[in-house]
Design a protein around this nucleic acid. Structure first.
Lengths: 192, 192
DNA sequence: TTGACACCTTACTAACCAGTAAGTAAAGTC
DNA sequence: GACTTTACTTACTGGTTAGTAAGGTGTCAA
């Protein structure tokens, strides 16, 4: 039964994996079903069988991403704010180390104007969730006294999100960017 | 002679203007020569006459941008660091108000992996110039005592650049983002 | 007045794109 | 053993892409 489920969803999952890699390196407009099918060793129409339209694939990608991010948050609910932030930095590094990928929210908001409506809606929800999470770190860090910073937690959380999103992009032109940004964010939070 | 120069460069300039609008709203991969030619009321090949390859147009766009940014910097060399920062905020707002455009460095670094080599080189130079400028503001602000912040001016300048780049993108999902970010950056610089 | 040049046009190519229709082989179901 | 479903394949369509070749027209200088 397990093997049955595996084989039933295997191709679909591999399509999503390859599409995700392509999305985070090349962007939504710069990858095609051909890229996926050749990489996967199947014909073009096989991809259309699993995801009839390209935006079906796009929406599925973001939804999977949102679920994964939710699990990422839940898994560290017990950690201190500083440790949660550190985990987020580790996640950010992992993106970059994997073929200089960038944050999904960065891709989606940059290509926003060209995305179909259903993908925009998913993108909005995803950005909201990431932002809420960043704000919660700043909030709880200030509450427990481990973080000290100027401005409101809402603004500080948003700034951290925006800086890391931009930072991952800028890191493609200079690999030292991320390390500098991480240190600076910690400085601004009074963590160093 | 002035009219002669005008007519000689008019179409070329209009192509660049339309292409710039398209680049900053849709991205490099999501606009075509067709978009430009229909907007301009000419045939496709007319664009190829002025810019034989698409990357010729791309390179010209970034080079024009670099020159403009240099003039922007030079024009306010005499202003205080805080006023220079304010001008940059104004510039950022102007992008967003114009069809929710985003920062050129945001487009170029997001699509970086799909750009031809000559465009990448120009993008690198452009990012360096923007970064240097942001760092100089932080440096001179600390030196003259008008700004007080944690960390080095290099890191603080980079953080401001990254945050505003990411912020312009995020603003597409929530129009209040930019105002919040501007306030927060000023808070972090001790300007409020 | 002639020739050169700038600035376009028409007409085209080859490649790629998303998407569809119809067929097929294998596996599971009744 | 017949039927259905799953997961593909082949073969195709219509549209878009960057890019080219060749021709036309007006301007300007000698």
């Amino acid at each position: 039964m397990k093997a049955e489920t595996d084989s039933r969803t295997d191709t679909r999952k591999r399509i999503l994996d390859i599409a995700e890699e392509l999305l985070l390196t090349r962007g939504y407009n710069a990858f095609s079903y051909q890229h996926i099918s050749t990489e996967l060793g199947v014909r073009n129409a096989a991809i259309h069988y699993h995801f009839p339209k390209k935006n079906d694939l796009g929406v599925a990608l973001i939804q999977r991403y949102r679920r994964r991010f939710q699990r990422f948050i839940d898994a560290q609910a017990e950690l201190s704010p500083a440790e949660q932030l550190e985990r987020y930095f580790t996640l950010t590094d992992a993106y970059f180390d994997r073929d200089q990928q960038i944050c999904p929210s960065g891709i989606l908001t940059t290509e926003y104007q060209t995305l179909p409506d259903d993908m925009r809606a998913e993108a909005n929800a995803f950005v909201d969730e990431m932002r809420d999470w960043a704000v919660r770190i700043a909030e709880s860090g200030r509450t427990d006294g481990s973080m000290r910073f100027a401005g409101t937690p809402e603004a500080m959380g948003l700034l951290m999100l925006a800086a890391l999103q931009g930072g991952l992009q800028l890191a493609r032109t200079d690999t030292t960017v991320l390390a500098t940004l991480k240190t600076q964010v910690k400085s601004l939070l009074g963590l160093v």
